[in-house]
């Protein structure tokens, strides 16, 4: 269990950097946005991992389990917000990419820079 906990954090770190790598290295603008969403997904995992409680269940308190243990609701709330922020950014980014395609005829960063010279 302890090893699994560490593994969660490692996966967070690796995912974060895979996403960042895609954002930095990829020239295709849509690929950059996909990388950005991986990057954000890593953060979701970090928050949710820290909220887990040994032997806990989802924080829905009914009469049947009123004395039980519950995982932390707060990180879950924060990540609900963050997921929505993520999709909003993605939608706006895609809108910009579509306009770039219409104006420049390409969505590869190097070709756009070539046209702008």
């Amino acid at each position: 269990m302890e090893l699994l906990g560490l593994y969660y954090y490692w996966v967070f770190a690796i995912l974060l950097m895979i996403g960042l790598y895609a954002v930095i290295v990829k020239l295709n603008l849509i690929k950059k946005l996909i990388g950005l969403s991986l990057f954000q997904a890593a953060v979701f995992l970090l928050y949710i991992t820290m909220g887990k409680l040994e032997g806990g269940t989802a924080p829905i308190v009914t009469d049947a389990n009123a004395n039980g243990l519950f995982s932390n609701p707060l990180p879950q709330v924060l990540i609900l917000t963050a997921i929505v922020v993520g999709i909003s950014t993605m939608a706006l980014g895609l809108g910009i990419v579509i306009r770039i395609k219409e104006e420049y005829g390409t969505i590869e960063e190097d070709e756009i820079q070539e046209i702008d010279k």
């Binding site: 949710i48 991992t49 989802a58 829905i60 995982s71 879950q76 990540i79 999709i87 993605m90 939608a91």
Partner: peptide, 22 residues
């Protein structure tokens, strides 16, 4: 990880809406 609400949202938003938009 006991985050049922987040799981539902990630499935609906991440797998559903964002795929359609992409």
């Amino acid at each position: 990880l006991d985050a049922a609400d987040v799981a539902l949202t990630e499935a609906a938003v991440g797998a559903g809406i964002s795929t359609v938009l992409l």
